[in-house]
Amino acid sequence: MTLVNGRLLLVALLPLAAAACQTKDLPAQPNFVSFADGGTASQDKDERFFIEFRSRYALSYGHTYAVFGRLNQDGRMVDPQVAGLHPASNSAVPYVLGHFVPVPAETGWSDGDLEEQYRSASWRVMLTRDEYNKVVAYIRKLQAKSHVWQATVLNCNSFVADIARSMGYKTPAIQLRPQQFITKLREMNT
């Protein structure tokens, strides 16, 4: 790619990144629960599996990720696992650079993911054991191949969208802010 083509690509991608930053998040949205199979997922208190598509507030425009695992008899998560795509650093430098070029990424937990005060939207989908095992296998495969983050094309929304599509769900545009993305994902599929 020539220097001129590289500059043209940068000029084309910059408005997408800027547009995503122009809207404001709403107050925290309520939690929503659905069943992957339309409502017949196991009701056995010892066999309650879930995936929860979430967004949270952050100093920037937020973060989108998935929490998955099993629920105890009281409906609380038991050893929840987190999958989400984000720059592989606590420094702001890779995050800023990632708005222009791909940067190294991680695909697990990030600070604030399980803290309720930062949750901005969520959609929990209850799963049977077989559905859960299939989703987790897909997440592990996706984590193994996701090594870079770039704000406009390989972002946290695109990562969660891949998971949702593997489950047969429709997904919104990945350029939405995280709270808008999760809310729209739920609305498109319930």
Rank of each mutant, 00 (worst) to 15 (best):
F49L: 10
N5K: 14
Q179G: 03
T40M: 10
N189G: 09
G62N: 06
C21E: 14
S60D: 13
G39Q: 04
K141I: 02
H147A: 07
F159E: 01
Y57L: 09
K134E: 12
I51R: 02
M126V: 09
Y57D: 11
A28I: 00
K170S: 11
L26K: 08
D74Q: 13
W149N: 03
L13P: 00
A105Y: 06
V11C: 09
K24F: 12
H86A: 15
A173G: 10
V93G: 06
L9G: 07
T64G: 03
E116F: 00
A88H: 12
T64S: 15
P102Q: 09
D46T: 15
Y169D: 00
V82W: 09
W109F: 11
F35M: 05
V101G: 04
D79S: 15
F32M: 09
Q29P: 00
Q81L: 12
D25K: 07
Y61P: 01
S120Q: 00
K24N: 09
E115F: 04
I182A: 04
Y138W: 00
P15W: 02
A20W: 05
A173E: 00
D46I: 04
A66R: 02
V67N: 01
L154K: 15
D130W: 07
I163M: 01
L85P: 03
R54M: 10
D162Q: 10
S34V: 08
N31P: 00
S55P: 04
A151W: 06
D74K: 13
G98Q: 05
Y57I: 06
T128L: 05
F49I: 08
L85I: 05
L127I: 07
Y61H: 03
A58E: 10
Q81Y: 06
A92M: 15
C21H: 10
S91K: 05
